[in-house]
Design a protein around this nucleic acid. Structure first.
Lengths: 367, 367
DNA sequence: TAGAGAACTGAGAGCGCTCTCAGTCTGTTG
DNA sequence: CAACAGACTGAGAGCGCTCTCAGTTCTCTA
């Protein structure tokens, strides 16, 4: 705090350059000198000034995390916390700082301008952004600026931006198949917002699972949600009129809404209605009944995003120094895993709820 | 990205200094010149280089947020998400960046060293830290370095560090009094970890409420928890043997554990057992039954932390420039609010659970 | 023990920006 | 119309660090 390289150099009786070498662990310093400098450094709690170092090196040690919007409820649902935790951890491991960039909604152009200029200012070595919040325009700008970036979730319009995401389709397929194997024939689904690629992929997984067992897709068993509990509740309430015996939900919050709707309608979960969620948040164990859910390795996805980004940054730097090995940065799809809890059960033909429109039960073959 | 002040100056046919004035909105630039420069700046998407600016100005535009530990479950409980959201928002409003500093546990000294030297490096204009995670030693060091800081939660050993926190004692008093007013006489409590000041304050609020109505404090009705669901469950399970008719829990997660324990013991909430939580997390509305909880303005606390910090930073800067008005930065206590939901009810003398050791019901006077 | 080569050290030129200070250019006044 | 205040502008000296390059000191080998 109180000291500069210059002062430490004076105190140790060497030049600035030598102190710099010692501080950065470079070779070519006599052992005795090295120790003397180290002692002075420690005695004075010297630490190199970050901004000066960035300026001199022409590189930043900061990674930007563009995700936080004015979207408090998204944050509070816990998904982002876990993700952020993985991201922060990996940043620390790579010795980068993680800086939170409150993402601007596409229509808030002044905020977006500030955001972009802060990125343009070279404060960030790279940026992690969420497909959900990153506007297409800002992605385009960042591409033009040549800022390394990684997207959490695929961004269809920007296929060239490396991304990390769970195997949404595979997971939804697995969750739906679980229900089908339990003998359910009328499996409904509550999707996420259909402008969201992950929601679409999950719906596709659901469709695939149905078609595999020869059940034709019934549009009336699909309701669009928005990944939130309230919408999940309303959607489920509407769906229950169609007498499904099971509902596959696009995420856990939606599933919690569905459970609430079922209870409200006097149905027992899982005896009258089986429910599957997606994300396997910690909350799944705390609901009544505990929620069967398709799990994704959220923290690991966050970590991998940073790993990918750091690789890109490194490549960019070596490119500048003449190294020419280019090649496309890979994206990563993470496997999902079904966590069976107590919200799903074998199809129950005797449930009063299932008697109305000819349930046609499937032969149960529990996994 | 691609441009420096120098280049913009050349393009606009003026000197560096003039471009600097325009970019920083300073006076004393002819209108015509100002516009010409602005145009060049915009055409080239110029933004000043952050590190260079910090270096030249001798100030950072970054605030450090020291809280994230390797404590994934703390994060995932949502409290920190909401707090972080308030913090991030206020930082953006004050035009600071928010950088996440993964806090080191006190026993991880190498990590702590890195952390401290990054702070010492002057990258941060100030630091927000959590009383829960900030080690006393790092606080002492930061005080020595003169880094402005604000603590989320009081740190008894550092009374001079400004802090923001909810009125824990008042809130606990309110929550407990609510139960007493419902006629409960055997009100148990599950505390937070007793090395945590907030947990202690909440316990004190509980004691105060009891003493106010002349009920003597019964140690056997107190169990120590750790703000987590699992410990809440176990603590409640143990407490139930003492036949309390109500439990005041130090936070919502603990309360959720208590609900689970009650159900496991065949008790109905609230008919056999009333339960109150603390924090009023969004999850309170989703439990069965919805949880009565003492609410604190989490996001506002986060925002205020930054407001306080920014004031300190400003004062420090003006001090350096000769301004001498010092004075102690204020701390802030935020009011709590009781959210009554369905987990609390009037004392029920006919509950089988309440028949054992002479319940001595209090006369119910519902609020 | 001279000479080559390796190991070590320091001087100095930036990185891109800010900010002071001196100089230039107005537009008023007396 | 000379003189002067006030508005404007640019030169230049850093901010604290890194990194190259030239110079110095060792350490071997012949």
């Amino acid at each position: 705090m109180l000291h500069t390289l210059e002062q430490i150099a004076a105190l140790a009786g060497v030049s600035r350059a030598t102190v710099s070498r010692v501080v950065n662990g470079q070779p070519n310093v006599r052992q005795a000198v090295r120790e003397r400098v180290m002692r002075v450094v420690e005695e004075n709690h010297y630490a190199p000034h970050g901004a000066a170092r960035s300026l001199a090196r022409g590189e930043s040690n900061n990674i930007g995390f563009m995700s936080w919007g004015n979207i408090a409820d998204v944050l509070s649902n816990g998904y982002w916390s876990i993700l952020a935790h993985g991201i922060a951890e990996s940043c620390a491991a790579h010795e980068y700082f993680l800086t939170v960039l409150p993402a601007a909604s596409s229509n808030d152009s002044s905020r977006q301008g500030i955001l972009m200029s802060s990125i343009a200012s070279g404060q960030f070595a790279g940026v992690v952004l969420s497909a959900q919040f990153g506007s297409d325009r800002s992605i385009t700008m960042m591409k033009e600026m040549g800022v390394p970036m990684v997207c959490i979730g695929r961004k269809p319009a920007h296929a060239d931006v490396p991304f990390v995401q769970p195997d949404n389709m595979g997971g939804a397929h697995m969750g739906t198949t679980h229900l089908l194997n339990l003998g359910h024939a009328r499996v409904a689904t509550i999707t996420g917002p259909m402008n969201n690629i992950e929601a679409i992929e999950r719906l596709n997984g659901y469709k695939l699972a149905l078609s595999e067992v020869g059940i034709s897709f019934d549009e009336s068993l699909v309701m669009e949600g928005d990944f939130d509990e309230a919408r999940g509740h309303d959607a489920a309430q509407a769906l229950l009129k169609k007498h499904p015996s099971a509902i596959f939900c696009a995420n856990d919050l939606t599933a919690m809404g569905a459970i609430r709707a079922a209870k409200g309608a006097g149905l027992r979960v899982p005896q009258d209605l089986s429910i599957v969620g997606f994300d396997n948040m910690p909350i799944c164990e705390l609901t009544t009944p505990p929620l069967t859910s398709v799990g994704q390795p959220i923290a690991e996805i966050g970590r991998s995003a940073i790993d990918l980004l750091v690789k890109q940054i490194a490549r960019q730097r070596s490119d500048k120094n003449g190294g020419g090995l280019n090649g496309h940065a890979p994206s990563m799809l993470f496997p999902t895993q079904l966590m069976v809890r107590q919200s799903t059960a074998v199809f129950n033909p005797r449930s009063p709820h299932n008697r109305s429109p000819s349930p046609k039960p499937r032969k149960s073959r529990v996994q």
